[in-house]
Simulated scan of single mutants.
Amino acid sequence: MARVTPCGADAAPVWVLLGARHGDNQQLLAIADALGVPYRTVPLRFRVAAGLPPILLGASRLSWRSKDTAALQPPWPRVVLAAGRRSVPAARWIRRQSGERTRLVHVNRPWAPLSWFDLIVTTPQYALPEQANVLMHRLPFMQPQQPIDVPLPLALQPYAARMPRPWTLVMVGGNSRPFVFDKEAAVGLAHLVNAQVRTHGGSAWVLGSPRTPATAMEVLAGSLDVPSHVVRWGEGENPYAALRQRAQRIIVTTDSASMLTEALLTGRPVVPFALPRQPDWRWSLATAWRVAATRRPTSMVARSFDILQGLGLLSSLRDLALLHRALEAAGAFDGSGRVLDMARQEREITLARIHALIARY
């Protein structure tokens, strides 16, 4: 790690804009750590105006502030790393203060004109168009598991002693538009866990998450008929890191790209469980528009989609099915371990592109 404090006297060539989404922040920090250069974190707080499209806010400070105003002083960074629509005005404001010299790197999708950014690092679920400044990878940027042993929490060690090996880790997500984890999905997941344990032997550890509905978790627990132990979110110390190291295979629900990536980066066989969809009208409209534009790229529908997307007024809402298909086509779920090589190569490409921007300042 090469972080400097927000008010440090040393110039940091990279600034990381931290927002409200934990997953976005973790991905930004993983990139910054891997760059191997000093960087500064700038936590952002958002005002009501942050709900407006970035194209209307421009490079203003109307929609955001930083709790550490002393951090927003020269020397300005060579590169800003940011994620999420609400961070876009802050990144552009910093670039304006630098005399337009600061390069902007955005992770995932910006909901803003793509031409504003020097590099956009994204994955298939956002369905961004192919452009020179869009770097499309199959996995989010995450570092692989560290070899440091993480012990199981003491409270779970008596259960572990009675759990036959090999262990199957079941990572349970929850409701995340358009996915829902309801009672029917809980029964289906239990059937998959039962079948996997019967086929491969051993037992299952079932871990909930902050988004896992309590009622669905109870149905899941009651539908398991193989040796298992269920850990609900908030029950004592979280055993997630320890079990990721010790499980021989993983079952993961398909509502979270980061959770799926963490499972794949263990290098062990991963079985995805598709949650049912209950899309709202907005998701259905945007997705249908994108699909129609893809099928007829020269049509008025496609041209209108491209124009509005170019202005940042329209974006394909997250469709994790696109990510799953890309990973399946790449053989990510076959347990061969080649997904680790794929992830490493993608990380190296991302870092090389950002280092090139740093050098161009």
Rank of each mutant, 00 (worst) to 15 (best):
C7M: 13
A12Q: 06
A20F: 11
R21M: 14
N25D: 12
I31Q: 08
D33G: 03
L35N: 03
P43Y: 01
R47M: 02
A49R: 14
A71Y: 12
G84A: 02
R95D: 07
P110Q: 00
I120P: 00
L128H: 05
A132R: 13
V134R: 00
V134A: 02
P140H: 08
Q143H: 10
P144E: 06
Q157M: 13
Q157A: 14
Y159P: 00
A161E: 11
R162C: 09
P166K: 00
W167G: 11
V170Q: 03
M171P: 04
M171F: 01
G174I: 00
S176N: 15
S176H: 12
G188P: 03
A190G: 12
V193H: 02
S203F: 09
S209T: 07
P210G: 09
T212A: 13
A214I: 04
A216T: 03
L224C: 06
P227Y: 09
P227W: 08
W233D: 00
E237T: 10
Y240C: 05
I250Y: 07
V252I: 07
D255V: 09
M259P: 09
M259K: 06
L260S: 01
L260Q: 07
A263Y: 00
G267Y: 05
P269G: 12
L275E: 05
P276A: 01
R277V: 05
P279S: 02
L285D: 08
L285Y: 14
A286G: 11
T287A: 05
T287M: 02
V291G: 03
A292E: 07
V301Q: 07
I307H: 10
Q309H: 13
G310F: 04
L311H: 08
S316D: 12
R318L: 10
A321M: 09
A326D: 07
E328H: 10
V339C: 09
D341Q: 15
A343F: 10
R344S: 13
E348L: 07
A352P: 01
R353W: 01
L357I: 10
I358A: 03
R360F: 02
